[in-house]
């Protein structure tokens, strides 16, 4: 692995694990399925994080 590809892997990994890449994926999906304009990033992130109100996800000991 070259330093460059390592760097791009790390960038990809951090974006995935923090959920930053989710909005891009949402746009991709949206384009494929719907004709209405997609949610803005602000609206989307709001919905995404508020879902955790109902499902906070357990953290172990």
């Amino acid at each position: 692995m070259t330093p460059r590809s390592l760097l791009s892997f790390v960038r990809w990994y951090v974006r995935e694990i923090t959920g930053e890449a989710e909005y891009d994926r949402y746009l991709e999906r949206h384009r494929a399925h719907a004709s209405t304009p997609p949610l803005s990033r602000r609206e989307y992130e709001r919905l995404r994080i508020d879902r955790r109100d109902a499902d906070p996800g357990a953290r172990c000991c």
């Binding site: 070259t2 460059r4 590809s5 791009s8 892997f9 960038r11 990809w12 990994y13 974006r15 995935e16 890449a21 891009d24 994926r25 991709e28 999906r29 494929a32």
Partner: peptide, 17 residues
């Protein structure tokens, strides 16, 4: 499988769509 090499980042999920 996503991001095995440089630039593969966002394309990784293409297939599932």
């Amino acid at each position: 499988g996503a991001a095995e090499g440089p630039g593969a980042g966002a394309a990784g999920r293409g297939e599932e769509a």
